[in-house]
Simulated scan of single mutants.
Amino acid sequence: MKTAHFILIFCLLALASPFAYASDPSPLQDFCVAINDPKDAVFVNGKFCKDPKLAKAQDFYYSGLNIPRNTSNPVGSIVTPVNVAQIPGLNTLGISLVRIDYAPNGGLNPPHTHPRATEILVVVEGTLYVGFVTSNTDNRLITKVLYPGDVFVFPIGLIHFQFNVGKTNAVAFAALSSQNPGVITVANAVFGSNPPINPDVLVKAFQLDKNVVKNLQSKFW
């Protein structure tokens, strides 16, 4: 019995050690194919770093999130990202930001997912109906109507959306827990893939008529 207790304590101490890690670092790209020949390799999971002595304020700065964006597009919304592409100083810091503008009466940030980030959103103008769907264990829809000053969280990887239910423009800002969160818009990915998914697959998956599937693919393509 004492031996069993010793082994248990040893295992717990090993797990608690600062030198013991249970998982890989979070990826910052969609995939990383392993290769054996380094001459064919590329740098991944970030960017090459500037000499810290050469860093300047501009490396950590972005201006313009106060400017309203044009929402005259089919979905009636536009996302302005501020990630490592806009602020090089965000590299390795694990955060980013977006501004989202919504047209009145139905401006929609369509159902989408961020494969690498949790999102926390705050409404500054207008009224938004927001929500996310839990994973396939129950596919439960969790929704809320938000007003200026309200905050809502979308857990990492889950499909979520925002919809302007007001008669005026709406604006929200969101922070994301990755310098490069990625975004997969469900309709675009399913019906607008390149090359297109075989319509027979989508007919069966969505239980739709084949002509409807082809029509949707033509719209998103």
Score class of each variant (00 low, 15 high):
residue 115 P to D: 00
residue 115 P to V: 01
residue 115 P to G: 01
residue 115 P to Q: 04
residue 116 R to M: 09
residue 118 T to H: 00
residue 118 T to Q: 06
residue 119 E to C: 07
residue 120 I to Q: 03
residue 121 L to C: 13
residue 121 L to G: 10
residue 122 V to D: 07
residue 123 V to N: 01
residue 124 V to P: 00
residue 125 E to G: 01
residue 125 E to S: 05
residue 125 E to M: 02
residue 126 G to Y: 04
residue 126 G to L: 01
residue 126 G to P: 05
residue 127 T to C: 07
residue 127 T to N: 11
residue 128 L to Y: 01
residue 129 Y to P: 11
residue 129 Y to W: 14
residue 129 Y to C: 05
residue 130 V to E: 03
residue 130 V to L: 05
residue 130 V to K: 05
residue 132 F to N: 03
residue 132 F to C: 04
residue 132 F to H: 10
residue 132 F to S: 03
residue 133 V to K: 07
residue 133 V to W: 04
residue 136 N to W: 15
residue 137 T to F: 15
residue 138 D to V: 05
residue 138 D to R: 09
residue 139 N to C: 10
residue 139 N to Y: 14
residue 140 R to I: 12
residue 140 R to K: 15
residue 143 T to E: 11
residue 145 V to N: 13
residue 145 V to T: 15
residue 145 V to E: 12
residue 145 V to L: 12
residue 149 G to S: 12
residue 150 D to C: 11
residue 150 D to S: 15
residue 152 F to V: 10
residue 153 V to T: 15
residue 153 V to I: 14
residue 154 F to W: 12
residue 155 P to C: 01
residue 157 G to S: 11
residue 157 G to L: 04
residue 158 L to M: 12
residue 159 I to R: 02
residue 160 H to R: 06
residue 161 F to V: 01
residue 162 Q to W: 05
residue 164 N to R: 01
residue 165 V to E: 04
residue 165 V to K: 02
residue 167 K to D: 14
residue 168 T to K: 12
residue 168 T to E: 13
residue 169 N to M: 12
residue 173 F to T: 08
residue 175 A to M: 13
residue 175 A to Q: 13
residue 175 A to V: 15
residue 175 A to L: 11
residue 175 A to E: 11
residue 177 S to D: 13
residue 178 S to K: 05
residue 178 S to P: 02
residue 179 Q to Y: 11
residue 180 N to L: 12
residue 181 P to W: 00
residue 181 P to A: 01
residue 181 P to T: 01
residue 182 G to A: 01
residue 182 G to D: 04
residue 182 G to W: 05
residue 183 V to F: 05
residue 183 V to N: 12
residue 184 I to G: 10
residue 185 T to A: 14
residue 185 T to L: 12
residue 186 V to S: 13
residue 187 A to P: 08
residue 188 N to A: 11
residue 189 A to G: 02
residue 189 A to L: 04
residue 189 A to D: 05
residue 190 V to S: 09
residue 191 F to R: 03
residue 191 F to Y: 06
residue 191 F to C: 00
residue 192 G to E: 00
residue 193 S to R: 05
residue 193 S to P: 07
residue 194 N to F: 10
residue 194 N to I: 09
residue 195 P to Q: 03
residue 196 P to H: 00
residue 197 I to W: 08
residue 198 N to C: 01
residue 198 N to H: 07
residue 198 N to R: 07
residue 199 P to T: 05
residue 199 P to I: 02
residue 201 V to T: 14
residue 201 V to Y: 14
residue 201 V to M: 14
residue 201 V to K: 12
residue 202 L to K: 05
residue 202 L to A: 06
residue 202 L to G: 07
